[in-house]
Amino acid sequence: MIGLRLSTSARQAVRSLSTSSIARQEAVGTVGTVPTKRPVGGFRGGILGFLFGFSVSSGLSIYYLQQENKIASGLLLASVEELQQGTGKISSHLDRLQFVEKEMNGLKTGGAIKEDVSNLRGEMKRVYDGLHLELLDLRAHVWGVEQDLQKVVKTESIRI
Rank of each mutant, 00 (worst) to 15 (best):
G42I: 01
S61Q: 10
L60D: 00
L135N: 11
N119M: 11
I47Q: 09
A112T: 12
L83A: 13
Y63C: 06
S18I: 10
G74H: 02
V31L: 07
S20W: 00
L83K: 10
F52C: 12
K108V: 14
G130A: 15
L60M: 02
R5E: 10
S92P: 01
S20Q: 00
V31P: 02
L131N: 02
S57F: 06
T87A: 15
S9A: 12
P39H: 06
G32L: 00
G144C: 02
V80K: 03
V80R: 02
P39G: 08
L136K: 09
Y64R: 14
F54W: 05
L65P: 02
S55G: 02
H132F: 14
S61R: 10
V14M: 12
V80G: 01
L76D: 05
L120A: 14
D95Q: 10
A78S: 15
W143Q: 15
G45S: 01
H141E: 15
K125N: 14
T33D: 10
R96V: 08
G111N: 00
F50D: 06
A13P: 01
E123M: 11
S118H: 09
A10F: 02
R38F: 05
T87V: 15
E115S: 04
I71Y: 00
F99I: 11
K114Q: 06
V40M: 05
A23I: 05
G3T: 04
K70F: 03
G74D: 01
L60Y: 00
A27S: 11
N119F: 10
L138T: 07
K114C: 06
I90H: 11
V153G: 02
V152A: 15
G86I: 12
K70N: 09
L77Q: 09
T87Q: 14
E81G: 02
G59F: 01
